[in-house]
């Protein structure tokens, strides 16, 4: 069954790596719903957040194929229940429309939004949240001559993760310990095999 998976990829900061990771999805004709790259908690290590709608089986295979790329340190994949995630959205609307016809204060309160810029000709609102929340404000503003709308990629924190600080030290060893060599599948042997 297909569902949303958020794939977190820890990588070296290397030109061309984005394409190498993206081809792992495109070769299987998987659409990337959203993609974000940013620094991670560890200096010099980059972190990709990739959102796809796929079956767990396929996501696991893709995750392993990404993880074996030379410049990739580690790949995790998580269901929506396993992460805290947010998206940010910006909305540009004509100031006179909005000032005349809407109770702006209520709008902002209801959607947890704030005004980033207020000019004579237009106003820019911002909100963060899950898809339904940013969509809610979008629908609320659509009747009032919405000029521009943009939503960021999903960024996500893995609930169960202890971060990458310890891991990176393991990776730097000549003989990485089993901690660095862990594999979500290989570490769950009892689930896959019983005599």
């Amino acid at each position: 069954m297909k569902q949303e998976f958020t794939i977190t990829v820890y990588t070296e900061n290397q030109v061309g790596l984005l394409v190498r990771i993206a081809t792992m999805f495109s070769r299987r004709k998987i659409n990337i719903e959203s993609l974000n790259t940013s620094p991670s908690e560890v200096d010099g290590i980059h972190r990709f957040n990739i959102l796809v709608d796929e079956t767990e089986e396929v996501v696991r295979k893709v995750a392993r194929q990404i993880e074996k790329q030379v410049d990739v340190l580690k790949v995790y994949f998580s269901t929506n229940e396993e992460i805290i995630w947010q998206e940010l959205a910006l909305y540009k609307v004509p100031t006179d429309e909005i000032a005349e016809k809407v109770k702006v204060e209520r709008l902002l309160r209801e959607h947890g939004a704030r005004a980033v810029v207020i000019r004579k000709d237009y106003t820019v609102f911002e909100t963060t949240g899950h898809r339904e929340e940013t969509d809610g404000l979008l629908h609320a503003l659509e009747p009032y001559g919405l000029i521009e709308f943009v939503r960021s990629a999903r960024v996500a924190i893995i609930k169960g993760s202890r971060g990458f600080h310890e891991k990176i030290r393991e990776f730097e060893e000549m003989q990485p310990s089993s901690e660095a060599a862990e594999n979500e599948f290989l570490n769950e042997g009892e689930k896959v095999f019983s005599m």
Partner: peptide, 24 residues
Amino acid sequence: CQHIRSYRPKPIVRKEYIEQAAVL
């Protein structure tokens, strides 16, 4: 070059799987 931190050419062998394979 003998080591790249993001690259693990030879994984650590997990003994428990060798044992399970041998039993089978």
